[in-house]
Design a protein around this nucleic acid. Structure first.
Length: 573
DNA sequence: GCCGTTTTCGGCCCGACTGTTTTCAGTCG
């Protein structure tokens, strides 16, 4: 129900934008949607008690609309608004550089109400009839459409993790199922996936598959057979189920976990050991005899390997490392002792400094770095130098009132300005315990300019680490042009840390660079970029990315205990 | 549409960037 309210209010905001309504009215709906989404409490109960308008930001109008949604499951105001535009028009907002005004213009003048029509209009040149759509704009739109097409069949792992775990638990609970696991790229911890593979061990595959296809979330049954089935959920995500015998389970799990490259190596290794390996069994060639295996560890052992964690199964040398016993001892969530890059209500966070700190402490962390936005990030209520200095005092007060086994560090997420300068003078930065330097503007510089810009920040002695290095938003926005290799070299030279931004929309720097960075001696900080206490959970996604980058706890600075991290933070200064 | 020690109207965040309409509108964060 809450999701329904949140979605409805935010869709109303979009539709009002299209209609060119008063921007403050639009904002009221947007913030209303945010408030309901983040509200900690039983919104339906509050509606019942008729106390919705006591929530700050929810006035009489929104309260009665929310009430109507809760009571009737619908909202006539919204239905009426919706009827003015085709449903498909929402997808145009997925194209970057297209906002409400341009979309309205396209719709009014050329009846463009879908991405398909938009693309056709760009290609035919028809679109240039409208003012505001010159050559460069058209090229950008086509690029954005292509980007969306390439990525449309993918989902961010962080977005679909909740539903994946729900389905897994549903399968596990079926009486016919003895084992159930998620395989595929999800299990390998990829940042985006295009489907989810479930493997179950069962004696009654037909019954299990029947249950699988009858789940409430199923929108479409793509295929349904005796041992496997594919469905599409109502969010568009495809899920495959494979039902095997208990004895086949480890083979199926291994095979469907992949990656393809990893599987090829595994099979050829089996071959050279006089075995045949497929998704059901390991067979001794000369005797045509199946080798009984209990779990994946035993399968790896039969092939002369130590167990390879799923995160490493990308065909990046993990087989050789396993043979040579040089596999990394991968960092785990329990190794994290603290975290940097977290926001509070001082800038655009939802929880106060104290709430954030207490939550971190409750999670068993020993320290928390607070890094609100800097002054140039006006949209995020970035802190003026004075406000930042005040926050330093606030942190000191907090630390004075808390036991010695926990500490808050004063930091900032400092904008790297277009010319590579930082958003505060060194005299301000030097008063902080650390800083995260990030790019939030001028994304369109050339690779050369952008690389120079960020390296200038890396060389600043008061920059502790670089935040979300490439600025990418998975499936939404490409990374900006930057020479990551040169950045890594500069970080190695200047003792500057690179973060893994664990927000599931970012997961930046990409795991594909981390093995290289580690070899160069660059340290990592796994940061949730938390804007509220719930976001500390993002650390789980960050850990997966670190694992995919072969990182061990010694590579990750926030695995250091409190005493040692303090020394490290002082090192660069 | 929301809010209120300036309380029933008037203010609400705003600067940078981009392309293009060459003086600014639209988008973005």
């Amino acid at each position: 129900m809450r999701r329904e309210i949140v979605k409805t209010l935010s869709n109303i905001a979009t539709l009002l934008e299209l209609k060119g309504e008063n921007s403050f009215k639009i904002r009221a709906y947007k913030t209303g949607s945010d408030i309901i989404e983040n509200f900690s409490g039983d919104i339906e109960q509050i509606a019942k008690d008729e106390k919705l308008d006591e929530i700050k930001g929810i006035g009489k109008a929104l309260a009665s609309k929310i009430q109507e949604i809760i009571n009737t499951g619908k909202l006539s105001y919204y239905e009426n608004l919706k009827s003015e535009f085709p449903d498909s028009i929402f997808e145009l907002f997925d194209i970057s550089n297209l906002g409400p005004k341009k979309i309205k213009n396209l719709y009014d003048n050329l009846k463009i109400d879908s991405i398909e029509k938009l693309e056709a209009s760009c290609r035919s040149g028809e679109i240039s009839q409208i003012s505001g759509f010159g050559e460069k704009s058209v090229a950008k739109i086509l690029e954005a459409i292509a980007f969306r097409k390439d990525n449309a069949k993918f989902f961010r792992t962080g977005d679909i993790a909740p539903i994946a775990e729900i389905i897994l638990n549903l399968l596990k609970k079926l009486p016919q199922v003895s084992q159930a696991k998620i395989a595929g790229s999800y299990r390998r911890g990829k940042e985006i996936v295009h489907d989810i593979d479930f493997i179950v061990a069962t004696k009654s595959p037909v019954e299990v598959i029947d249950q699988f296809t009858k789940m409430v979330e199923v929108d479409e049954i793509i295929s349904k057979g005796k041992t496997k089935s594919s469905i599409r959920l109502n969010n568009g995500l495809q899920c495959d189920l494979r039902a095997v015998k208990s004895s086949e389970f480890p083979f199926a799990l291994s095979y469907f976990t992949g990656s393809k490259a990893h599987n090829i190596r595994m099979r050829s290794l089996a071959n050279s050991n006089e075995y045949t390996l497929n998704e059901y069994a390991l067979i001794q060639k000369n005797k045509n005899e199946q080798i009984p295996i209990q779990n994946e560890t035993e399968l790896y052992e039969k092939l002369g390997l130590t167990y390879i964690p799923p995160a490493l199964r990308e065909g990046q040398g993990e087989i050789e490392a396993s043979q040579n016993s040089t596999l990394p001892n991968l960092v785990k969530i329990d190794n994290l002792k603290g975290t940097f890059h977290n926001h509070t209500t001082a800038s655009d966070g939802k929880n106060s400094l104290e709430e954030m700190a207490n939550a971190a402490k409750d999670l068993g962390l020993q320290y928390l770095g607070i890094s609100d936005h800097s002054k140039s990030s006006v949209q995020a209520n970035g802190l003026s130098a004075d406000r930042l200095l005040n926050q330093i005092d606030e942190v000191k007060k907090y630390n004075n009132n808390i036991e010695d086994n926990f500490k808050v560090f004063s930091g900032v997420e400092c904008d790297i300005l277009k010319n590579g300068n930082l958003d505060y003078d060194d005299s301000i930065l030097s008063q902080l315990d650390y800083s995260v330097a990030s790019v939030h503007s001028s994304f369109s510089l050339t690779e050369k300019e952008m690389t120079k810009r960020v390296i200038k920040a890396i060389e600043n002695p008061f920059v502790t680490m670089i935040g979300h290095l490439t600025g990418r938003l998975l499936l939404i926005r490409k990374p900006y042009d930057i020479n990551v290799s040169k950045i890594i070299d500069a970080c190695a030279e200047n003792n500057t840390i690179i973060e893994i931004n664990a927000n599931p929309r970012r997961l930046d720097m990409d795991w594909r660079w981390w093995k290289h960075a580690k070899d160069k001696g660059v340290k990592c900080s796994i940061n949730p970029d938390a804007h509220k206490i719930e976001h500390f959970q993002f650390l789980h996604f960050g850990i997966k990315i670190a694992q995919k980058g072969w990182l061990e706890s010694s590579d990750v600075v926030n695995c250091l205990p409190l005493g040692k991290i303090e020394k490290l933070l002082n090192l660069k200064k």
